[in-house]
């Protein structure tokens, strides 16, 4: 696919308040470099992320969506991310089934101490999506059929 050389993906990241958001913060404080492609939405728990949020992000123009939460077992609410895991294992496969490239929707466990992991996840996701090019699937820019 020929892609504008200057094009950079837009990634929407849903980060849990207790781990991944703090992880992202740590990446910032630690001045770790990663691409400025992610727009973070802080959520109380990765379990708060409704599948509709993910799809809505794609509809409104995201090239990739990241859901990030505490490692299983470390949830601030003790079990929230266990539900997240089930939900998004399923959703990931459904999105793939509908023809969305797997790289565009990812879930990662990132703790408050893992600033470097956050930077690495964003870097890697950006590279993968960069290779795929802009997302045209699910886009809801035009309201009319045909």
């Amino acid at each position: 696919m020929s892609v504008d050389a200057d094009w950079k993906p837009l990634i929407v990241g849903f980060c849990c308040n207790w781990c991944s958001y703090a992880g992202a913060d740590l990446a910032g404080i630690g001045r770790m470099s990663y691409p400025a492609t992610i727009r973070i939405i802080r959520v109380p728990c990765s379990g708060r992320v409704n599948p509709h949020f993910v799809i809505r992000a794609f509809q409104r123009g995201a090239d990739g969506v990241l859901v990030a939460g505490c490692h299983p077992g470390d949830c601030h609410y003790s079990t929230g991310n266990f539900y997240t895991r089930r939900r998004y294992l399923l959703m990931q496969r459904l999105l793939e089934y509908m023809g969305i490239e797997p790289a565009r929707f990812q879930v990662r466990w990132i703790s408050a101490a893992e600033g470097a992991k956050f930077a690495q996840v964003v870097t890697q996701m950006t590279e993968e999506i960069q290779a795929l090019g802009p997302n045209k699937k699910l886009r809801g820019g035009c309201t009319c059929k045909g």
Binding site: P51, H52, I55, Q59, M98
Partner: peptide, 17 residues
Amino acid sequence: GATNLSNNQVYQMIRFM
């Protein structure tokens, strides 16, 4: 309420989720 491909995909995916 717009019936376009995007909305229809969303409707069906969310319903099946």
